[in-house]
């Protein structure tokens, strides 16, 4: 299971989605700006604290990231390999290794937002961030993606099972992709056409009542913290 939104009452749940978006960007910028290990130790501690506040097990999180970890490990090894003596450069491997570790931290920082922010709050933040009809269109489409995903996934699973039962695994890869793709696409288009009718019937408008967003004291604190990180990031680049 990948990380997904869970309702809760933690500090992170209470922060405004705009604050959380801003802080993520600031943390990621700072993480990428600093290449030495010490700041990474700081970020590691911050991430572990955040996970414990959210009651998420770091091991469980790592388990959901297995494919990424495998890829990053291979990258680290490949970065060290030399053609010709001495065949392996520890310095190169450790540089990529540290970078790979930083990527893992960055991904987990994103998980904190994902775990604590319902789509609806993010939609409201999007509409605030991107004003006018473009923002409205973006929020509506993102909401629709959230509705379509579970339906399409169910369809996709059903089709895979049906193909397997009828010997589909003996087909060549590209035939399998084609058969699978066309059936999923056809089902998706049917669902989407009816949903389009439903959205019109339910009076989709450009100027709806928007969910209210408001900054609290905690938000201002977090925004200042983010500013500080951004300042550090910019300073290290200059």
């Amino acid at each position: 299971m990948s990380v997904a939104y869970r309702p809760g009452e933690t500090v992170f749940h209470r922060l405004d989605p705009r604050t959380k978006l801003w802080c993520q960007v600031a943390i990621v910028a700072a993480a990428y700006a600093y290449t030495d290990p010490l700041p990474l130790v700081g970020l590691t501690i911050a991430v572990l604290v955040a996970l414990s506040v959210l009651d998420l097990s770091p091991w469980r999180i790592l388990a959901t990231m297995r494919p990424v970890i495998v890829l990053l490990t291979i990258a680290t090894v490949v970065a060290g390999v030399r053609i010709g003596s001495p065949w392996f450069s520890l310095a190169d491997a450790s540089e990529t290794g540290i970078a790979a570790y930083r990527v893992l931290l960055v991904i987990v920082v994103g998980f904190v937002y994902v775990h604590t922010t319902p789509t609806r709050a993010s939609q409201a933040a999007l509409q605030w961030l991107v004003p006018g009809r473009i923002g409205r269109g973006l929020a509506v489409s993102v909401g629709l993606v959230g509705r379509f995903l579970p339906r399409f996934q169910t369809t996709a699973r059903r089709i895979r099972d049906a193909m397997a039962i009828r010997g589909g695994d003996r087909m060549s890869l590209h035939r399998r992709i084609a058969v699978f793709g066309i059936v999923v696409l056809a089902a998706a288009v049917r669902d989407a056409d009816r949903t389009s009718v439903a959205m019109r019937t339910r009076c989709l408008s450009w100027n709806p009542t928007l969910p209210s967003l408001s900054f609290g004291r905690l938000d201002y604190l977090a925004i200042v913290l983010g500013l500080g990180l951004c300042f550090l990031a910019i300073r290290s680049l200059l």
Binding site: T119, R120, L204, P208, T209
Partner: peptide
Amino acid sequence: DQLLGATVREDVAFGPENL
């Protein structure tokens, strides 16, 4: 085809919000 919110309450509010 017509349930457009992520939760029950969000969905029922869809029409009135758009009005």
